[in-house]
Amino acid sequence: MRRRDMLLGTAATFSLGACADSKFRRYTGPEVTMVYVNKSARRMHLLHHDTALSSYDIHLGFAPEGHKQFEGDGKTPEGTYRIDRRNPNSDFHLSLGISYPNVNDVQVARAMDKSPGGDIFIHGQRHPRKPDGKDWTWGCIAVTNDEIEEIYAMVADETLIVLSA
């Protein structure tokens, strides 16, 4: 009986320990009112009005110069968008969707007889133990898995995101 109790206790401890390693964090600090991405500096800032709460080094699309114009161009959008969805089951750990394309983005792509694309996210790494190179995404904004856990907890849906050159 004693051995059974010890085994059950050990199993419970490991189960509870796994919960502590959850990728879903809680955030109780000031509201993030805007996400600001400076593409040329490769930095992203989470702001509460005019105060920076957190800042991160970022990786962009594999062709980072200029505004995204069509699907597959490897560019990260520029302009003002919103965080419009979240993916807890992302292939890149966790991800927050950006409301690209807007009406203007669609018009520009269609004028070139192309699709504007979509599925632009802030997300984590491809392989958590293998560092990614510089500017490796198809137009997304990438951070480390640890950082996306923090960002995912801090940034609410409908938060404004400004992406500048």
Rank of each mutant, 00 (worst) to 15 (best):
T144F: 04
T137Q: 07
I151R: 05
D132W: 02
A165L: 06
I122Q: 06
Y100E: 02
D21C: 13
G118N: 03
T76R: 01
N87H: 07
P64A: 06
S55Y: 06
G17M: 10
G139P: 02
A109T: 00
M6P: 01
T28S: 15
V155K: 05
I98V: 15
G118V: 01
V37W: 08
D91C: 10
D146N: 10
F70T: 03
S22E: 04
V35I: 14
V108L: 08
G117E: 04
N145T: 12
Y81P: 00
N89S: 14
A18D: 07
N38K: 08
A12L: 13
E65Q: 12
R126Y: 05
E149V: 09
C19F: 09
G117T: 07
M1T: 10
K68S: 01
S90A: 14
G66L: 07
F62I: 03
T28I: 02
R110Y: 09
Q69H: 10
P77A: 02
G66Q: 01
G97W: 02
R82F: 11
T10H: 11
K39R: 08
G79V: 02
L96G: 06
R82A: 08
P131Q: 07
L163V: 14
H59P: 01
Q69L: 14
F70S: 07
H93V: 13
D5R: 12
K134P: 03
A63K: 12
K39L: 04
R26S: 13
A156H: 11
W138R: 10
V108Y: 05
R85Q: 09
P101Y: 01
I120D: 00
S22V: 06
I122H: 11
R126C: 00
R110G: 04
G124Q: 11
D84A: 01
R42I: 04
E150G: 07
T51P: 00
P128G: 06
A18N: 06
P101L: 01
V37K: 03
W136P: 00
G139Y: 05
L96M: 12
A12V: 14
I122R: 09
L94N: 10
R129H: 09
Y152P: 08
R25F: 13
G118I: 03
V35S: 06
H59C: 09
R4M: 06
A20C: 05
Y56A: 07
L7V: 09
R3V: 13
G118P: 00
E71A: 15
M154Y: 08
G72D: 04
A111F: 15
M6F: 10
L96Y: 09
N104S: 11
K114F: 06
E150S: 13
T10G: 06
M34H: 05
K130I: 15
D21I: 11
S54I: 03
S99T: 04
F92Y: 15
H123T: 05
G124N: 12
A41H: 04
Y27V: 04
F14G: 03
A156W: 10
P77N: 03
T33L: 01
V143G: 10
N102H: 04
I148H: 11
T144Y: 08
S90F: 10
P77D: 01
T137F: 06
R82Y: 08
R82I: 03
G29K: 00
S15V: 11
H48A: 00
M44Q: 04
V106T: 14
R85D: 11
M34Q: 14
N38E: 08
A63N: 15
C140P: 05
Q107Y: 10
I141A: 11
I120R: 00
T10A: 15
H48V: 00
